[in-house]
Design a protein around this nucleic acid. Structure first.
Length: 379
RNA sequence: UGGGGUGUCGCCAAGCGGUAAGGCACGGGACUUUGACUCCCGCACGCGUAGGUUCAAAUCCUGCCACCCCAG
């Protein structure tokens, strides 16, 4: 009988754990190519498709086709019910509370990455992966983990991932780190990756908009949910009311306050000669206030529910940069700590329409330091 | 029914005899794993109406209509 120490056995077992990975697969080109890259690097890859809404099954079918092609397993997790109860429910509540929620930001840590890690734990795998364009680095000073923009600098999805915790970041592999979208599409074409119907994934358009809302019609979803949940008080927020300018003059009729968010420019047929933006929604009087662009510029915002990544806390008046929406360039600002753990952020130059409910994410040279939810803004 | 003024795209508005600027709104694209923003493209064979002058009129002339103002 060969002598095997328990240490050696653990070592072999560890090797298996280290070389296996659960990857989230959406059926799109990014996660498919990410999967391909992991396989090429010698990982044992198991795919995981999350079905969060009724139309998610076709996406899972495309993921299945890719897995078949790559010779890997695919697990499909149907979590429509729990997704409805958590993310969709909160999304609706936030809108009804006058906020402008960003469901993706919450879904990533609490649903998407959580399920990936839970599944990895069940398999005894150390790593999880996704097809995001992002990377995980260590902050040079704190040695904490932080998301970072990828070197390619082309596509950057870090904003949506800022709420991932240290334990989660420690287990993530982003195979697309450093790649550009065209490179990814080229690889997909080169390896002939295709979906269930034989459509080339290289040609598949990027996913966009909120995954659980068909046709970008979030208002339609709100309407349905208000009826389904019997939220009679909220019905009035779907009814037309006056649009007033900054002087209080009625200049038109809006189509329900829930159809608008701060900074919005379109969607109100109003007699005007200049560009007007939504500067406030008054739910008590069902009034929409609009005005010229300068009224939408804000220099100070309050941020709560902060998740710290690259740093454990801010120095007083620490100069950093922050983005108030995913597509914005980070803007210079200073951060002040409040007693209740919230932050006051003062931008060097005013930023356009930061909306309560949206996220403010702090960056330092491409590294995410922290991020939180905007609660209010001031001039 | 005396005098004066104005009538150009849904809204505002250039044009002042040479063959309809522009802005807002709207529609369509691009961008985008949130709401938005932004960008690009489109948008009056016709200028209250009916005639007239002219090679040529939204632009000049006349009638009519509508609205506004001032007087009664």
């Amino acid at each position: 009988m060969p002598m095997t120490t328990s240490d050696e056995a653990t070592l072999k077992y560890d090797h298996l754990k280290q070389s296996s990975v659960i990857i989230g697969m959406s059926g799109g080109v990014d996660s498919s190519v990410a999967s391909l890259l992991l396989k090429q690097q010698g990982f044992t890859v198991v795919g995981l498709s999350l079905v969060t809404h009724d139309r998610g099954m076709e996406a899972a079918a495309d993921a299945r086709a890719v897995c078949r092609r790559l010779g890997q397993e695919l697990i499909v997790v149907d979590m429509r019910d729990s997704f409805q109860e958590s993310i969709v429910h909160d999304f609706v509540d936030a809108w009804l509370a006058g906020l402008t929620p960003n469901p993706c930001v919450l879904c990533n840590p609490t649903v998407k990455f959580k399920t990936l890690i839970d599944t990895a734990d069940r398999f005894g795998f150390r790593h999880i992966a996704t097809g995001h364009y992002a990377s995980v680095r260590r902050h040079p000073d704190s040695s904490r983990l932080a998301l970072a923009k990828t070197d390619s600098g082309q596509k950057d999805q870090t904003y949506f991932l800022y709420r991932l915790q240290q334990e989660q970041l420690a287990r993530i592999i982003f195979p697309l780190d450093g790649m550009s979208k065209p490179e990814v599409r080229r690889l997909a074409a080169e390896y002939g990756l295709e979906g269930e119907q034989g459509t080339a994934l290289a040609e598949k358009p990027d996913s966009q908009d909120i995954c659980f809302i068909p046709d970008q019609d979030y208002l339609g979803l709100l309407r349905e949910e208000i009826v389904r949940r019997g939220l009679d008080d909220a019905r009035k927020h779907l009814e037309p009311g006056p649009i007033v300018d900054v002087h209080g003059q009625i200049i038109g009729t809006h189509k329900g306050l829930l159809a608008y968010t701060i900074g919005q420019r379109k969607g109100f047929d109003v007699k005007t000669t200049e560009r007007l933006f939504v500067i406030a929604r008054h739910f008590s009087t069902n009034t929409l206030v609009v005005g010229p662009f300068e009224h939408v510029l804000k220099q100070t915002i309050q941020v709560k529910s902060v998740v710290y990544s690259g740093i454990g806390n801010f120095d007083e008046a620490q100069p950093v940069t922050a983005r108030v929406r995913s597509s914005a360039q980070p803007a210079a600002c200073r951060v002040f700590n409040n007693r209740d753990k919230s932050l006051t952020v003062r931008f060097d130059q005013p930023v356009a329409s930061p909306a309560p409910g949206q996220s403010c994410v702090f960056y330092d040279r491409g590294l995410i330091l922290a991020g939180g939810i905007i609660t209010e803004s001031a001039d």
